[in-house]
């Protein structure tokens, strides 16, 4: 495999680090399973998206510059989040970076990938030869879908799993209502949008709702729990890793 001698770095988003470490571990296990040994740079922190989305671009800038310094020397950077990857790829240019950071960005922006995209395109894996029983509804996270163009990658990988029935609800491509700081500034509205999403997945008969972003899933899981809905959330990478028995 062409990637054997490449340096692949993990980028673990701040909330994954603290709340969903299993998702990060699933990514590591999958990469190892496909013969890639990822490197974890422990001095990494946040990509800066929460600040930028809140209008605090001034505070996002040092974090972005820090990110670029840390990851500049890697051939590939893989993250279990479409949203953070999109921030790096598409929005770092808006932060008024230093000339040096801008040069680093030109390199890094083409090398950073969301997990399923990396597995599908860079590793050339289009099917997961494993088993995971259950009916799973797909939520196409907004930034993955519209900013990174992720569409067939998770569909193809998930639907190849034995005993996994992937359903794509009619509103799969609609927002879950999380929206980062939007979810705290307008909690009721955020919840109302998310509940529509959950209702639609439940009416498709799904037991699990999946996505390539734990941020959407954190919001949906919180709603499902509080409202005692009969559905739970699981990151696409976690499903894939479980299907392959990588625990």
């Amino acid at each position: 495999m062409a990637l054997l001698n490449s340096k692949v770095a993990l980028f673990i988003p701040c909330y994954t680090e603290q709340f969903f470490p299993e998702t990060g571990m699933a990514l590591v296990r999958l990469l190892k399973y496909f013969s890639v040994a990822p490197i974890y740079v422990s001095s990494q922190s946040c990509c800066g998206q929460p600040a930028f989305n809140s209008g605090q671009g001034r505070l996002a800038k040092p974090l972005a510059e820090r990110f670029l310094r840390l990851f500049e020397s890697y051939d590939w950077i893989v993250a279990p989040s479409g949203s953070c990857v999109s921030m790096v790829r598409n929005l770092y240019g808006e932060l008024g970076l230093s000339p040096q950071a801008l040069r680093q960005w030109e390199l890094v922006r083409d090398r950073i990938y969301e997990g399923t995209q990396f597995i599908y395109h860079q590793l050339g894996i289009h099917a997961i030869e494993g088993r995971f029983p259950g009916k799973v509804a797909l939520h196409e996270s907004c930034h993955g879908k519209r900013e990174l163009g992720i569409e067939h990658e998770p569909r193809s990988l998930l639907s190849s799993i034995t005993d996994l029935e992937l359903v794509v609800p009619p509103d799969a491509g609609e927002c879950c209502g999380f929206g980062g700081t939007f979810s705290v500034k307008f909690p009721e509205l955020s919840a109302a949008i998310g509940l529509k999403k959950l209702a639609s997945a439940i009416s498709c008969g799904a037991e699990i709702i999946t996505a390539v972003d734990d941020s959407c899933l954190m919001h949906l899981q919180g709603l499902a729990q509080r409202q005692r809905l009969n559905i739970r959330t699981m990151h696409a990478l976690v499903i894939m890793s479980k299907a392959l028995g990588l625990e």
């Binding site: 909330y15 709340f19 969903f20 979810s183 705290v184 909690p187 009721e188 955020s190 919840a191 998310g194 509940l195 954190m218 919001h219 899981q221 919180g222 709603l223 729990q225 509080r226 409202q227």
Partner: peptide
């Protein structure tokens, strides 16, 4: 995080 959601 509001009344409608459990926190992570």
């Amino acid at each position: 995080w509001g009344r409608d959601r459990s926190s992570p």
